[in-house]
Amino acid sequence: MAGALLEVTGLSKRFGGFVALDGIDLSVAAGERVGLIGPNGSGKSTLVNCICGTLVNETGSVRFDGETVDGLLTHERTRRGMARSFQLPRPFTTLTVADNLRVPLLYTVNARPGRALSPTELDARCAELLQLVALADKRTHLPRDLTQVEMRKLELARAMAAEPKLLIADESMAGLSQSEVDDIVSLLIRLNERGITIILIEHIMRAVMKFSQRLIVLVSGKKIADGLPDAVIRDPEVERAYLGQ
């Protein structure tokens, strides 16, 4: 697809004899909201790790924003505009909530060419991001004082602080209540409306269906479906993978 923001071609990853990903092709257009689903162990997180450079894929290549990013380290990909949140929140535990956001601002936004943010601008940006995820009053707290849903929001805010073009949210709603899930979904949609392309990896189908404009299904390391959400979930192959025959 021409003009795709993210383009993955023939990506494979194996752990010893186990093939975790087998020739994955996918592309995501700028501004799109894509859902990525699949049963446990189907390779979703491995795919994210390969796209972000945490794991090195054996074959295939990842193109981002018109350039190949193969061989680049994770922080280099982050600087190019690829951000992710982790499945289990991984906050910087000894830094305050505001300082957690300061790190990507200092190391990503200020590391890009152009004018660096001044200390007062940094403070303002942190405050703005915290406002966005409704954590402003927890600014000076340590992450251990946050609730689960607040932790997830911090995780998303930290990914957002890097001013990404693409945000990959890896199961950012697991274990949350219904209203909290709605909270996060509407947050993600708001971010998308600001022009950020989002890939959502999720098990909670209600959230996925509400969020996604397109759905990609991964089963045992292979992509078995890719299309409009309503069509994909009626696909017999997808049904078979989820419900058995």
Partner: peptide, 8 residues
């Protein structure tokens, strides 16, 4: 891991 993902 989170540090790398934040651009460090």
């Amino acid at each position: 891991l989170a540090a790398e993902a934040s651009g460090v």
